[in-house]
Write a protein that binds this DNA or RNA. Structure first.
Length: 608
DNA sequence: CTAGGGTTAG
C-alpha cells in the first residue's frame, strides 16, 4: 500500500500510512524503507523533513547497511538538496552496484555540479569496471550538457552508438539536448533526424534547442513539421514556442501561437500564462501583458507573474510603475526573490532612478535574498549610466566574490557612454582574461578608442580579434508587416526589398540633414572617410527595417522593429528625427530594452 | 514486493 502511494505521487498519503503502521507496532523491513524514502524524496512540501526520522529508523532497525536502503537514502538526501549528506551515505557503503553509482552521479548533475558527476563516472569505470547502461548515459549526457563541452558530447554519443542503446528514446533525446546545450545545434539536428522513433520530448528538445541558441525561426519551421508529422504539441511545446516568439519579438507570430493554444483548448497553467505575458511585453504590447496579469485571479498569481510584469515595465523605461508593482506584491504577501530584484534593479537603471535603486539593493537583505553577481551588474549599470563611474568601480571592489564578466561588462559599457578610457581599459583587461573569446568586449573597447579617434589602438584590437577568429554576431532586425515578419541584416544583399529600401534610406538621410540631423559616427569602427561611414550607418539593419516601414506601411500604423543587438547612437537619433518628420510612431526593441519614438523624442529620454 | 533517467522555467 505504501509502495502504491509512493509510486503514484501520493507522497503525503504514503508517509501517513507509514506512520500509522509504526504506531500500530509493525516493524518496517528492507523492503519498506525504499518505498518510504521515495515518498520522502519527492514530497512537494519543501519543509517536510520526514527522511531524517526515517534515516534514524533504518539504523535502529538494523537495515542501514542494506544496499537498496542506502541507495534510496542517497537519492532522498540528494532530492532534498542535501548533497553532502548523500555523499556521506554513499562513501559509507561497502558494496555498490551500477544503480548506486548512477544515483550519486545523477545527484551531482541535478545539483549543478556536473564536473563531480564526470569524476564519479570515471571512478566507477576504473575501480569497479561497471559499464553505464541507458539510465546512466542519460544522466551523464545531462552533466556533459551542463559543462558544455562538444568533445565530451561526441564521446557520449559514440558510446551510445557502440553499445546499441541509441535506439532507446530517452537516450537519443538526452543526446539531442546535450548537443544543443553545448551550442552545437547542427549535431543535435543530425541526431534528431536519425531517430527512428520520436516522441513529444524529442520534438520539444529539438525545439527548445533552437530557441536556446537564438534560432527562433528554425524553431517555428520545426513546429510546423511537428504538426505535419502527426505529433500533437503539449503544454511544454507551447511554452517553448511562446518563448521563441518573445525572442523574435514578433507579436503576430506570438498571437498565432496564442490562438493555437486557445483553439486546441490546451491547458494554460500559471507558467504558460506568465510566458504569454512575457511574450506580449517583449513584443511591445505592454497593455495586453498588463491586462492578462489583472485577469489572473489574485490567488493564482505567483512570484513569476509579478516578476514578468515588473521586468516588462522596466524594459519599457517605466520605472515608477515597476516600483509600484514591487510595493504592491509585498502588500499582497508575495515575497520577492532573486529574479524580482534583478528585474526591479534593472527597471531603476533604465529609468535613472538611482536613489530608489540603492534602496531596493539595500532591501535585499531584509528579504534574505543574497546579492549575486547579476544584482551587482544591475547596480554597476545603474550607477555607471548615471555617470557615477567611481562609485560603480568602488561597488565592484566591494564584492564578496570575484566580479564576473557581466559586472565588468556593465562598467565597460558605461565607460563607452561617458568616454572614460582609463576605467574602460581596466574593465576590458579583466574581461579579456575571463572571456577572451567574446567579441562584444573587443568591440566596446574599440568604440571607446574610436570615439577619441585613437585609430592605432582600434587597429590593434581589430587585429587581435581577427587572429582569434572572432567576429561580432551579425546584426539583424525584424519588422512586422501585415501577417509577416520581415528580417533585415546589415548591408543585406539577399533581401528582395533591398533596392527600394536602400534608395529610400538615402533619401531619408538627405531629408533629415536639411532639418539639422548630423550623423553620429562614433560607433563606426573603421578608419575610413566620413562619407563612407555615413553609408555604413545608413545600412544598419534597424534603419533598413524602419525605412521599409515608412515606405510600405499605412501612415497611421505604428512601426514595430526588434533588433538582436543594441541600437546604435546614430540610429537612435535618426528615429527621433523620422518620428517627427513623418509623424510616425516607431517602436524599437533592442537587446536590452524598448524605445518608443514619437514627435521627435524617445521614451528612454536618451538615457540608455 | 526494493534503489537511478530525457523536454519547459520570469
Amino acid at each position: 500500500m505504501v509502495r502504491a502511494y509512493a509510486n503514484n505521487g501520493h507522497c503525503a498519503d504514503a508517509l501517513e500510512l507509514y506512520a500509522l503502521m509504526r504506531r500500530g507496532g509493525v516493524l518496517p523491513d528492507n523492503y519498506t524503507f525504499p518505498f518510504v524514502l521515495k515518498a520522502c524524496a519527492s514530497d512537494s512540501d519543501p519543509l517536510a523533513r520526514g527522511w531524517e526520522v526515517v534515516h534514524g529508523e533504518t539504523i535502529k532497525t538494523g537495515f542501514d547497511p542494506d544496499m537498496y536502503v542506502e541507495a534510496a537514502l542517497v537519492d532522498a538526501y540528494a532530492k532534498r538538496g542535501r548533497i553532502s549528506c548523500a555523499r556521506k551515505v554513499f562513501d559509507g557503503m561497502t558494496q555498490r552496484d551500477l544503480v548506486c553509482w548512477t544515483t550519486m552521479i545523477t545527484a551531482y548533475e541535478q545539483a549543478e555540479q556536473p564536473q563531480e558527476s564526470l569524476v564519479l563516472l570515471c571512478r566507477m569505470q576504473r575501480e569497479e569496471s561497471l559499464l553505464p547502461d541507458p539510465v546512466a548515459v542519460v544522466s551523464v549526457a545531462s552533466a556533459v550538457g551542463q559543462v558544455g563541452d562538444v568533445k565530451s558530447a561526441k564521446s557520449v554519443h559514440a558510446y551510445a552508438i557502440q553499445n546499441g542503446i541509441l535506439g532507446d528514446v530517452c537516450v537519443a533525446n538526452s543526446v539531442v539536448a546535450m548537443y544543443t546545450k553545448c551550442g552545437n545545434v547542427e549535431y543535435a539536428r543530425m541526431a534528431f533526424d536519425r531517430m527512428e522513433e520520436k516522441d513529444k520530448i524529442s520534438w520539444n528538445s529539438m525545439l527548445s534547442g533552437y530557441v536556446q541558441n537564438g534560432q527562433a525561426n528554425e524553431a517555428l519551421l520545426l513546429f510546423e513539421q511537428m504538426q505535419d508529422s502527426g505529433c500533437k504539441p503539449n503544454p511544454v511545446t507551447a511554452l517553448i514556442m511562446v518563448s521563441a516568439c518573445a525572442f523574435l519579438g514578433s507579436c503576430h507570430l506570438g498571437k498565432k501561437i496564442h490562438d493555437y493554444i486557445l483553439e486546441n483548448k490546451m491547458k494554460v497553467d500559471i507558467t504558460l500564462q506568465n510566458a504569454l505575458m512575457d511574450m506580449y511585453a517583449k513584443c511591445g504590447n505592454l497593455e495586453t501583458a498588463s491586462q492578462m496579469f489583472h485577469e489572473i485571479p489574485p490567488k493564482e498569481r505567483d512570484v513569476s507573474s509579478w516578476n514578468v510584469l515588473i521586468s516588462a515595465y522596466g524594459m519599457h523605461g517605466r520605472g515608477e510603475e515597476a516600483l509600484n508593482l514591487y510595493l504592491q506584491m509585498q502588500e499582497k504577501g508575495v515575497a520577492p526573490n532573486h529574479i524580482t530584484f534583478t528585474s526591479i534593479l534593472s527597471a531603476c537603471s533604465h529609468a535613472g532612478l538611482i536613489n530608489e535603486g540603492r534602496k531596493c539593493f539595500a532591501d535585499m537583505s531584509k528579504h534574505s535574498v543574497m546579492p549575486e553577481a547579476k544584482h551587482y551588474t544591475c547596480m554597476v549599470d545603474m550607477l555607471g549610466r548615471a555617470g557615477l563611474l567611481g562609485e560603480a568601480f568602488d561597488l565592484i571592489k566591494s564584492m564578496p566574490a570575484s566580479p564576473n564578466d557581466g559586472v565588468w561588462g556593465a562598467l565597460l559599457l558605461a565607460c563607452r557612454v561617458h568616454g572614460n578610457s582609463e576605467l574602460g581599459e581596466i574593465a576590458a583587461n579583466n574581461l579579456f582574461q575571463i572571456e577572451p573569446e567574446h567579441p562584444g568586449y573587443y568591440v566596446l573597447l574599440s568604440n571607446i578608442y574610436a570615439a577619441s579617434r585613437r585609430w592605432q589602438e582600434v587597429g590593434k584590437l581589430r587585429e587581435n580579434m581577427r587572429t582569434r577568429g572572432l567576429s561580432k554576431p551579425a546584426a539583424f532586425s525584424v519588422i512586422e508587416y501585415g501577417q509577416e515578419a520581415i528580417g533585415f541584416y546589415t548591408a543585406d544583399q539577399l533581401n528582395p526589398y533591398r533596392g527600394e529600401v536602400y534608395r529610400h534610406m538615402e533619401r531619408l538621410a538627405v531629408e533629415m540633414k536639411t532639418r539639422g540631423y548630423f550623423p553620429d559616427r562614433s560607433c563606426v569602427l573603421h578608419d575610413v572617410e566620413d562619407e563612407d561611414k555615413d553609408h555604413i550607418l545608413n545600412y544598419h539593419s534597424e534603419k533598413l527595417a524602419v525605412a521599409f516601414g515608412i515606405l510600405k506601411t499605412d501612415s497611421e500604423s505604428t512601426i514595430t522593429v526588434s533588433k538582436n543587438l543594441r541600437i546604435c547612437n546614430d540610429c537612435h537619433s535618426t528615429f527621433k528625427f523620422l518620428s517627427d518628420i513623418y509623424q510616425r510612431q516607431i517602436v524599437v526593441r533592442d537587446a536590452n530594452r524598448f524605445h518608443h519614438f514619437q514627435a521627435g523624442s524617445c521614451s528612454c529620454k536618451d538615457y540608455w
